[in-house]
Design a protein around this nucleic acid. Structure first.
Lengths: 339, 339
DNA sequence: GTGAAAGCGCTAACAC
DNA sequence: GTGTTAGCGCTTTCAC
């Protein structure tokens, strides 16, 4: 690790070393050299010298001049989470395909941090921004719009920019249906009403999931009695307390337990894993969202996995297309994974 | 989402609008204005106007001028992994404290991608780079050094830049000891020799872990018979096959099973969870590395959790300090977590 | 086919 | 206390 005394080479260094002019060097070095019909010998000499003296482009200068940065930004709530990790991964792949450098920043669901971060990304002239799980998507849109920066919401929709989200209604209905089906194949043809745990009922996604769950339940199992929706937040401990309580109330597990989000599910699992395997003979557990740890549980679960590949692909499609309607809402169906 | 027609405001716009000069505006807007004893009125007027017309700094221009970018780079193998997610998280926190913008890029353990990415980070003039789990740390060092960019290796050491890694020897010994202790407290005072599964024996970390395991084993349980080290890679399925085989050989689980890495552990778990709880009465499982999913397993485990906070903090300390010896190797002790 | 020169938005001497 | 000016390294007309 030499200290920063080493001055980076510039096109002028290459120009001087080859005897060509800076503009020729520039043209050769950034590929824009078919337009300038440069002699192949000149080109080769420049390329070689650049390599020899260890030239690396200064992307800040290039960006300033061309007023584009080659950066593309993504805002996520946090890094240490399977779902957002998967989204980051996909984002990066798509960014790479476009020869852009991904800048993925987490804002910990902190509105101030969120705002500060967008402003920073804007200041770096990122070419576009993907906003996932923001607390205030429309505020972000406001900032981006002022700077003329294209952006999309992912996961959590906004009203001022096109959004790509999970098809929560469809997914919840599908998950519910498949829970019923599994119960039937286990011999339980006439199950008692299901329960829904986790999430906040005012939240856009939770609302849609409750609706999908409720409607499908009505359709195949009849109306849902009151108090069967217990969406009291995402906190694992709260969710854990909820299922413990429910188990005490009923003297057994319910026939169907729909858990909203893996976060809440973690709390639920802590209680469930203490139960004997037989407790699950007439209980099916479903979870909206997916985490690979489900594979290691001692009881079976059905999970709705959000297709992160598709979410991100659609989002990039919107960013690529010249005009995208702010009202546009694209819903991507999740897939069911049974363990 | 307005399209990019909106030209971003510059200090010249603010200067014109307030009647001040660009340099005054610049000084006010970047805080460097105590040195220039600017009148408070002028400053306020400028600040207000900047806000009113929606000025945002152009960090590319600033970076070019000051020849520093305000970016700090991190290279990780992948985003969708708990350990690297935790490292990213810590990295971001530390970057924020230093008012730097984190650029975290994954290279999927692909040497080409790794090289391309460092070069890109160098081109963006990042102030320093943290390299985690690189396939070829020294090649990265070479590139960074040519450009005079400070960097450290984390997790996997290199020889051309200071490194911060887990204290693998100590951690493995400690884990082994605590496995013996648990076995003792479960009534098994004279256990048969343990087994080691997972990892590649040529890999720096695996080597140190095997040494720690072997030495401690020798110390308290006597010498390790041949074939008790079965480090045949990180692949979960291979590791799963290994434990299945071992179980068949022995007719039961070994008294002690040391699994190297959560990746290999996943495969092991898939087999173990199929066993009745009683199978673990005289078997203790240890895993070097930690993943929260352990909490949800139906059998107990002891895990060695790498202290990501400390790893990253130490790494940043090295980056901050003016001269850091390339030979420096800082080892951070992991902590044991018992489930 | 190649070079000269202007300028992207900003900062930091250096004026006054 | 504030303005003028010269670049940072690059791209891109325009000239020859």
């Amino acid at each position: 690790m030499r200290s920063a005394e080493v001055r980076k080479k510039t096109i002028y260094d290459v120009a001087e070393a080859t005897g060509a002019s800076p503009s020729t060097v520039s043209a050769v070095l950034n590929g824009s050299w078919q337009t300038r019909r440069i002699k192949e010998d000149t080109a080769n000499a420049i390329l070689e010298m650049a390599k020899r003296i260890g030239y690396t482009a200064n992307l800040q200068a290039r960006g300033l001049r061309r007023s584009r940065s080659g950066l593309v930004g993504m805002i996520i709530p946090m890094h240490h989470n399977r779902y957002f990790g998967a989204l980051s991964h996909e984002f990066e792949q798509e960014a790479r395909k476009r020869k852009l450098c991904p800048v993925i920043v987490s804002t910990l669901r902190n509105p101030m941090e969120e705002q500060r971060t967008v402003e920073q990304l804007v200041s770096f002239n990122v070419e576009s921004i993907m906003v996932t799980g923001a607390t205030d998507p429309d505020n972000i849109s406001r900032i981006c719009s002022r700077a003329g920066i294209r952006h999309v919401n992912v996961d959590l929709p906004g009203t001022k920019a096109p959004s790509v989200i999970s098809d929560n209604y469809w997914g919840a209905a599908e998950l519910t249906e498949s829970m019923v089906r599994r119960l039937a194949s286990a011999g339980q043809k006439k199950p008692k009403p299901f329960y829904f745990i986790g999430g906040v009922p005012t939240d856009h996604n939770t609302k849609a999931r409750i609706a999908g769950f409720t409607d499908k339940h009505l359709e195949i199992l009849g109306p849902l009695p009151p108090l069967h929706i217990r969406a009291n937040g995402y906190d694992p401990d709260v969710a854990g307390g909820q299922i413990r309580e429910l188990h005490a109330e009923l003297g057994e597990l319910p026939h169907g337990l729909f858990v909203n989000s893996t976060i809440a599910f973690e709390g639920v699992v802590k209680f469930l894993k203490s139960l004997p395997r037989a407790a699950f003979d007439s209980c099916v557990v479903g979870c909206y969202d997916w985490d690979p740890f489900a594979e290691f549980l001692s009881f079976p679960v059905i999970m709705a996995r959000q297709k992160t590949e598709l979410l991100v692909a659609e989002a990039f499609r919107l960013l690529d297309s010249p005009q995208a309607n702010p009202d546009l809402l694209i819903e991507v169906k999740p897939e069911l994974i049974e363990y």
